[in-house]
Simulated scan of single mutants.
Amino acid sequence: MPSIRNITIAGASGNLGKLVIDALIARGEYNVHVLTRNGSDASIPHSVQVTAVDYTSVAELTTTLKGQDVVISTCSPGALESQIPLIEAAIAAGVKRFIPSEFTADIGNLKASALPQYTAQLRIQELLQNATNENPDFSYTSIRNGVFLDWGLAMGFQVDFKSERPALYDGGDRPFSTTTLATVAQAVVGVLGRLDETKNRAIYVHDLVTTQRHLLSLARKIAPERRWEPVSVSTEDMERKARENLAQGKADLISLMGFYCRSVFAEGYGGEFKRVDNKMLGLGYKSDADLEIILRGVLE
């Protein structure tokens, strides 16, 4: 593929978006352009060009994206549908590569893809596949990274260390892939350096594979004065409750948490990536020592 120079990021004010901007700037090879919503007061580095847009206007987005080589979307899970006009505009503007806001579990897994929280990502995936068939100069790359390691631990997702009785899902022994936000940002940069190898496909990355029980054992080593008495929780029961909540119109993160836990901790849902693309993207792996440093920051 031709070399790329001009990169536009949509949804850059979030936790991941900020790190993607920093990683691109540090690379020193790209002109970085950020899209914000009209009226947004997002804090963006001064070295980055910022354009406020109406995300519902394909015409306005097309004009804004003229001359851009790559569009990276890091929008929040609640704004995934806003990528549809953005994709249409990217195609019309002659953008070469689109990286959607996927950054999640293995939605290529049949069991995981049947969970309702991934409907929007799958719709975007189908839209991109159809678009590449109809527009040979347009391409996409999806990035799947499992659970966000640092963010997830801080939020108590993998193990809720703020609770004296944290949940261990389906026994707590199921291995799962997990990746820091910074590594995901580096994966984005890695894709830009491997456009041919990453064309029209999903790539998989992780920093490490661990289990809930292993995280708990490390936490006990770091903070021996703390007492945790874990309780067993069934992800099947959690999924059942999440479906009941959804049927009642409850669609917030807490109400649907059973779906997310199912995709990460349940058997057969692809929570552990068996094959990753770290080497191709120039990414290494994290050790238990690295994991302890992250855990220490969470616990302290």
Rank of each mutant, 00 (worst) to 15 (best):
Gly172Met: 00
Asp41Phe: 12
Pro85Leu: 08
Glu225Leu: 08
Ala167Lys: 14
Phe161Asp: 08
Ile84Ser: 06
Asp288Ala: 04
Thr198Phe: 07
Leu195Phe: 10
Ile99Ala: 06
Trp151Ser: 14
Ala114Asn: 04
Gly28Pro: 00
Glu236Gly: 13
Gln83Cys: 01
Pro116Leu: 00
Ala266His: 09
Ile294Cys: 05
Ala52Trp: 15
Ile4Leu: 06
Asp160Gln: 10
Ala26Thr: 04
Lys279Arg: 15
Thr179Gly: 03
Gly271Val: 01
Asp106Gly: 12
Ala120Phe: 07
Leu65Pro: 07
Ser234Thr: 10
Arg174Thr: 07
Gly67Tyr: 01
Arg123Asp: 09
Glu272Tyr: 11
Asp207Pro: 00
Glu225Arg: 06
Asp207Trp: 01
Leu168Lys: 12
Glu88Leu: 12
Ser43Arg: 06
Gln158Met: 05
Ser3Gly: 13
Val205Met: 05
Val48Asn: 07
Val95Phe: 10
Val34Trp: 09
Val34Lys: 05
Ala120Tyr: 05
Lys221Glu: 15
Leu215Met: 00
Leu208Met: 14
Ser76Cys: 09
Pro77Leu: 15
Ile44Arg: 10
Met257Leu: 09
Arg27Glu: 11
Thr132Phe: 12
Asp288Cys: 01
Ser3His: 10
Ala167Gly: 08
Arg174Ala: 00
Arg174His: 02
Gly39Thr: 01
Ile87Thr: 07
Lys111Asp: 00
Gly17Phe: 07
Gly284Pro: 09
Ser255Gln: 03
Ser40Gln: 14
Thr180Pro: 00
Asp252Val: 05
Ala187Ile: 00
Ala223Thr: 02
Ala105Leu: 09
Ile99Lys: 03
Ala26Arg: 12
Gly284Asp: 15
Asp196Leu: 14
Phe176Ser: 11
Val209Glu: 02
Ser217Leu: 03
Gly39Leu: 00
Arg5Lys: 15
Val189His: 05
Asp22Phe: 02
Ile294Phe: 00
Gly282Asn: 03
Arg240Pro: 07
Gln125Phe: 03
Leu291Tyr: 00
Gln68Ser: 15
Ser47Ile: 01
Arg37Gln: 15
Val205His: 11
Ala89Phe: 04
Ile124Asn: 09
Thr210Tyr: 09
Ser73Gly: 03
Arg174Pro: 01
Glu267Trp: 06
Leu181Met: 05
Asn278Val: 13
Ile25Leu: 15
Thr198Tyr: 02
Ile254Tyr: 06
Asn245Met: 00
Ile7Gln: 10
Ser57Met: 05
Lys274Glu: 08
Ile124Thr: 11
Asp290Gly: 12
Leu281Arg: 04
Pro85His: 02
Ala242Gly: 03
Ser76Lys: 11
Leu16Ala: 02
Phe98Lys: 05
Gln83Arg: 10
Asp290Arg: 02
Leu110Tyr: 14
Gln49Ala: 15
Ser3Ile: 15
Ile84Ala: 02
Phe157Thr: 02
Tyr204Ala: 01
Asp41Leu: 15
Arg227Asn: 09
His214Pro: 06
Glu292Gly: 11
Trp151Tyr: 14
Ala59Ile: 08
Phe161Val: 11
Pro85Glu: 01
Gly172Leu: 12
Val209Gly: 04
Glu292Phe: 10
Arg213Thr: 13
Gly271Ser: 05
Gln117Arg: 12
